[in-house]
């Protein structure tokens, strides 16, 4: 298993921080990609942050009312080592299946 830390992204043009309004997940929760993680408020608006990936929540940083700077850790996931990157999925390894059979008279052998 690997730990993956997700920092607070810049939620607008040049914002420097955001205030946690409510965590929508708790430590130990299994989350899916794009599942809402937390509601935060910036100087522009209140937004829900979708999860960048699937995994188990190991740690959340800050509680309701805390101010987090852009780039500081927001949440830490535990992910299996064979989890795909931020884009795409790990191809399933399955037994090769076939419909085509070969038939040949090899006159040269």
């Amino acid at each position: 298993m690997a730990e993956l830390s997700f920092p607070l992204p810049d939620l607008g043009e040049g914002l420097i921080e955001a205030t946690i309004l409510e965590w929508l997940v708790a430590e130990g929760d299994q989350v899916e990609r794009n599942q809402p993680l937390v509601e935060v408020e910036t100087t522009k608006s209140a937004v829900e942050l979708p999860s960048p990936q699937a995994g188990t929540v190991m740690k959340v940083h800050g509680e309701a009312g805390s101010v987090i700077a852009v780039g500081d850790p927001l949440i830490v996931f535990e992910v299996p080592d064979d989890t795909a990157g931020i884009v795409g999925t790990v191809p399933a390894e399955k037994a090769p299946a076939r419909r085509v059979r070969l038939s040949a008279v090899l006159d040269d052998d």
Binding site: P96, A97, R98, R99, V100, R101, L102, S103, A104
Partner: peptide, 10 residues
């Protein structure tokens, strides 16, 4: 895929 490659071989 496997079948297309087998067809090519055939």
């Amino acid at each position: 895929n496997i079948d297309r490659i087998l067809f090519g071989i055939q």
